[in-house]
Simulated scan of single mutants.
Amino acid sequence: MSTTRLATKPPTRRSGHHTLVLREDPDGSHDLSVLLVEPIDTDGLTLPGGPAEQDELPHLAARRHLETETGLVLPLRTILTIDYTPATDLPESLDLVYAGGMLTPRQAHTLRHHQPPQRIRTLHWIPRSGLRDATTTDHYRRVEDAWDAWEHGAGLPLLIQGTPVPIG
């Protein structure tokens, strides 16, 4: 029988939880755009998301940030990409990007009427061709990798203590 030993002083690490949300352009071109937010305190646009609170389940942290920033409530259970940032210039972090999927016209309508919190200037729909100019290099790579995983049906199911997170 094995025993789990916990460190008396576990290391601190920041975890970020973000969501990739897509929609078809309304002009009928069938091109896709990604939903990005414009925070007031950082350069470039980012995916909706932010840190988890103490003892908050990871997918619920992503869902909370998504709802607060955009008004959308989506089931999040698939991780598209994991982005590790070492503690060199920034605090060490592990950022997870969840699959929010393709918005329906009704969900897009909800988004248009949502007032983001004061820390968010505005919401933007950016086509893939415009990502490099709209985001910082690290966010560009994160969004590109997540989008590529979504397109190819790749992703990791989120497990909590070995049990898949239920849909909903």
Rank of each mutant, 00 (worst) to 15 (best):
D27R: 14
D138E: 07
S29E: 04
H109F: 12
G101A: 01
G16P: 02
Q107T: 08
T42K: 11
A61T: 06
P51A: 14
Y98P: 01
V143Y: 04
R119G: 01
A7M: 11
P58I: 03
E92L: 08
T136Y: 00
H17C: 02
Y98V: 05
T78I: 10
D41E: 11
R13W: 04
W147L: 15
P10C: 13
P157F: 06
P26Q: 14
W150M: 15
L32F: 13
P117A: 12
P127K: 02
G168Y: 03
S93Q: 14
P11R: 15
T3F: 06
G100L: 08
R14W: 10
L20H: 07
D83G: 00
P117M: 11
V165C: 02
Y84V: 13
L80R: 00
G153Y: 13
H139K: 01
H152I: 07
P86F: 10
L72K: 03
R141C: 02
G101H: 00
R13I: 15
L158I: 05
V143P: 01
L76S: 02
L36P: 03
L35K: 04
W147V: 11
W125H: 06
P51L: 10
L20R: 07
D27C: 13
G101C: 01
E69H: 10
V73S: 13
S29G: 04
T70E: 08
K9P: 00
H18C: 03
G49F: 02
P86I: 10
T122I: 05
D138A: 11
T12L: 15
R14V: 15
P157V: 11
R77L: 11
L35D: 06
G100S: 07
L6W: 05
T110W: 10
H114G: 04
I79N: 00
L57S: 04
V34C: 11
D31S: 14
D43T: 14
L47Y: 05
R112K: 09
D27T: 13
G50R: 05
L47P: 06
A61E: 07
Q115N: 14
Q161F: 02
P105D: 12
P116H: 08
A7D: 09
P51D: 09
G16W: 11
E67Y: 11
M1C: 02
H114T: 09
T137L: 13
R64A: 14
D41F: 02
E69V: 08
P75R: 01
A62S: 09
T88L: 13
S2F: 07
A62T: 05
L35N: 02
H124Y: 06
E69P: 01
R77G: 09
H109Y: 09
T46F: 07
L66D: 10
P10N: 12
Q115H: 15
E56C: 05
E92F: 01
R106F: 06
Y84N: 09
H30V: 01
P51F: 04
Q161A: 13
E151S: 15
P166L: 12
V37G: 01
R141Q: 12
P26T: 14
M102T: 05
I126N: 03
Y140C: 05
Y98C: 03
S2K: 06
G49I: 06
E151K: 15
P58C: 04
